[in-house]
């Protein structure tokens, strides 16, 4: 399972990098989302993939066998990363809207005038 997930993450990274190198801003944005999800999956993988219960200690239990519950920390980290991703997604879509309003195109080269002066 780990191996399949690792290969999948690799594929996601590859497609993310490919998308981010395109000239169309829509594809660049999609590339950012793909890369962000690939990174979230890396954290997910770091907790280990195993079949076990939710990361809660039952009420009143003094001791818990670590094999029976999953590691809750990577889940918390991913949740944080997803929330950050949500904020960035909202921002980047608004930016895209504004971009289209000004240039009326998806082509990123339309703005490349500030660098040469």
């Amino acid at each position: 399972m780990e191996l399949i997930l690792a290969i999948f993450i690799g594929l996601l990274y590859a497609s993310g990098v490919y998308l981010i190198l395109r000239r169309s801003i829509v594809k660049v944005i999609l590339g950012v989302f793909v890369l962000s999800n690939a990174t979230n999956l890396i954290i997910f993988l770091s907790g280990g993939i195993k079949r076990s219960g939710a990361g809660f200690i039952p009420a009143g239990a003094e001791k818990v066998d670590p094999a029976t519950i999953s590691d809750p920390l990577p889940q918390a980290l991913i949740l944080t990363a997803i929330v950050i991703g949500l904020g960035i997604a909202a921002y980047i879509l608004a930016l895209k809207y504004r971009y289209f309003e000004i240039t009326e195109t998806h082509d990123l080269d339309q703005l490349s005038k500030t660098d040469q002066k």
Binding site: T39, I42, I43, S46, G47, L73, P74, L77, I88
Partner: peptide, 17 residues
């Protein structure tokens, strides 16, 4: 800057694992 964040977070994932 997003790419740099992805690098950083991937590093954290690997280190934590």
């Amino acid at each position: 800057n997003l790419i740099s964040s992805f690098f950083f977070v991937a590093g954290i994932g690997i280190l934590y694992g």
